[in-house]
Amino acid sequence: MPLRFVHALFLLGFSLLLLACEGAAVTTPTPVTLTIAGSTSMAPVLKALTDAYSRRHPNVVFDLRGGGSTLGEAAIRAGRYDIVASTLFPPDPEAGRPAPPGDEALVRTPIGLDGLAIIVHPTNEVTALSLVQLRDIFSGKVLNWQALGSNAGEIVLVSREDGSGARDLFETRVMGEERVSLTAVVMPTSQDVVDYVAGNPAAIGYVSRAHAAAWMTDAQMTTNAAQEEAPIKVLEVEGRRPTRDAIAAQQYVLTQPLYLITRGAPTGRVRQFIDFVLSPAGQAIVAQYHAPIR
């Protein structure tokens, strides 16, 4: 075979290889942005889940927004956002929770269970409260910690904003027909409640378990020495703390669901993300903050 012909074949093969490489570069996955709004109580677990998913799929980025469960569900019914995170119980007319217009289009995917942690300053001597005592405190019937065996002084109430899933559960399970006192300091997120209580020895508030998990173990609170270093203290309610085991067994009275909500059945990247959340890897992440559903 003539050398010139061999050289021509080599150049042709090299050119085809370059074209193949250029073609491969063109097929880079298109960047995708998914917007998740709603529950601020679920913010820590959503941040961890979306970070883990983006490491596996670098072309998928997430826009995480708050707003609360109630506003989030209203937005997803109106077709805004890709996913909404919510801790609200689903509509149940027999239980006094009528379905808003458009709710029939929503698909709620449970991903775990949460518990409301009742928190005080670590110097407060109180370690446990009943639901009745909580109701009396937040309604303003009990004004001083001395009535409960503590020297923390006049009680400072810390509540969540209207529309919060945490507030909805607290008012339903704890307050009943009574109202939270107008003297309560209202905070927009669970983290804000933690920060306020940590800086006020007389304060008491309620937050998602995720914001107190760092100072809890599955079975019990951390040691006394570790608890003294913690910025907050989690109280027993009706004899139990919101550990994963107690929440999973429905033994803690202030338990609420964790949902990812879509308008219609999830498809495409939204479906892939929700599938990841329900996978063993995703549920292991959920378990760092809440009780997993699987």
Score class of each variant (00 low, 15 high):
Glu125Val: 03
Leu49Ala: 01
Leu157Cys: 06
Asp136Ile: 03
Thr123Lys: 12
Ala78Phe: 00
Leu46Ile: 05
Pro44Lys: 10
Ser86Met: 03
Arg55Val: 03
Ala147Arg: 11
Thr127Leu: 09
Ala75Tyr: 11
Gly79Arg: 04
Val61Arg: 14
Ala43Met: 15
Glu73Pro: 03
Thr109Cys: 00
Pro93Gln: 04
Arg56Trp: 07
Glu154Lys: 15
Phe89Asn: 15
Met42His: 00
Val158Met: 12
Thr40Ser: 14
Thr50Cys: 10
Thr70Asn: 14
Val132Tyr: 03
Ala85Ile: 00
Thr123Met: 11
Leu106Trp: 01
Ile111His: 03
Asp82Tyr: 08
Val120Phe: 07
Val156Leu: 08
Gly68Cys: 04
Phe89Ser: 13
Gly96Ala: 00
Ala74Phe: 13
Ser150Gly: 01
Pro29Ser: 00
Gln146Arg: 15
Glu73Thr: 14
Leu134Tyr: 07
Glu125Ala: 14
Gln133Asn: 07
Gly140Lys: 03
Leu157Glu: 04
Val120Asn: 07
Ala99Cys: 06
Gly153Phe: 01
Ala152Ile: 00
Asn144Asp: 14
Glu154Tyr: 11
Lys141Arg: 15
Ala128Ser: 15
Pro90Ile: 02
Met42Ile: 10
Tyr81Ile: 05
Gly96Thr: 01
Thr33Ala: 09
Val32Met: 02
Gly140Cys: 06
Gly79Asp: 04
Phe89Gln: 13
Val84Asn: 01
Leu148Thr: 06
Thr127Ser: 15
Gly67Lys: 07
Ser69Asp: 10
Pro58Ile: 01
Ser159Glu: 14
Thr50Asn: 07
Pro58Glu: 04
Val126Ile: 06
Gly79Asn: 07
Ala128Trp: 02
Thr40Val: 12
Ala52Cys: 12
Pro100Asn: 10
Arg80Cys: 02
Ala99His: 08
Ala128Arg: 10
Val126Phe: 10
Gln146Pro: 11
Asp162Phe: 13
Leu148Glu: 09
Val60Met: 00
Gly102Glu: 08
Thr50Ile: 00
Leu64Ile: 09
Asn59Asp: 05
Arg97Asp: 11
His121Tyr: 04
Ser41Ala: 15
